[in-house]
Design a protein around this nucleic acid. Sequence first.
DNA 1: CTCTCAAGTAAGAATGATTCTAACGTAAGT
DNA 2: ACTTACGTTAGAATCATTCTTACTTGAGAG
Lengths: 141, 141
Amino acid sequence: MKKIMDEFKDLELKLTPQRLAILGLILDKPGRHPSAEEIFSKVKEDYPSISLATIYNTLDVLTKKGRLVEITIDSKKKHYESNLDPHHHIVCTCCGKIGDVWDEELIKKLPVSDVGDFEVQGWHINFSGICKDCREKQGNN
Amino acid sequence: MKKIMDEFKDLELKLTPQRLAILGLILDKPGRHPSAEEIFSKVKEDYPSISLATIYNTLDVLTKKGRLVEITIDSKKKHYESNLDPHHHIVCTCCGKIGDVWDEELIKKLPVSDVGDFEVQGWHINFSGICKDCREKQGNN
DNA sequence: CTCTCAAGTAAGAATGATTCTAACGTAAGT
DNA sequence: ACTTACGTTAGAATCATTCTTACTTGAGAG
Ligand SMILES: [Mn+2]
Ligand SMILES: [Mn+2]
Ligand SMILES: [Zn+2]
Ligand SMILES: [Zn+2]
């Protein structure tokens, strides 16, 4: 109840009920990677007059301040999460669900030899695959 | 002159001057990863009346037929290339230039242990870094 | 050779995601 | 309480992409 309010103080951002609701929602769903639109529908339940632009602005400022991470595994839209520990992602080619990939090897160091004329700063691996739910549905056919 | 026309026959796609120009342009620039808009400006030099939608349609059908690959390293827009050999990419955090990463290890097999409930089908690594040009420009400050 | 028609094509309209702008609210300093 | 400066947010605008529909083309029928 108190902690999330301090988060905004720490980030030097003004605390508003809308922002509280947006960050609170994302913190509430560990392991999820909601899109702006998904966050919008949820927050609208409590703040029916909130604008989608406020969602985008808030996600943007929280990402720039380093409190959220932007996941770009879905070329249709951005997804967000609050878990800042470096990790990779996997998307289901069937239903689009996004999962975390916590593999120490792939996070700490990647044995790459040739990146042309570039100096590597970081990397992110986008896996694709089929989730458990979709495998089970396929099995029923 | 003849080969590119056969490409469309092989793909079972009707040959049009616009399509010829679009694919020809991409084949002409190995190592580049142009966006729809970039292709549009170039093709428009020869076909001033061409629509941007035609570019999107053509890129889409050529991608679906497997003749082009869609690169999603840039969250702002898609990029395309004609090199079908599996490889990864690196984007310059300074100027946005996209480079190829041809590393056998990372292409053939990735030693991944935990992907949750997913069955892995494939992966693509997005590296970020600084390109040679930008490094040299920084040095001049 | 000409007609029909089904399938393919492409321009402009529509959509969806994201960003911009300008009016508004807030709070610190006087 | 008044001013002012700054952050906030709704709606407008923009950008990338997709949809719709009138047009084109060419294979087969007559
Ligand atoms: Mn994650
Ligand atoms: Mn490439
Ligand atoms: Zn699935
Ligand atoms: Zn650069």
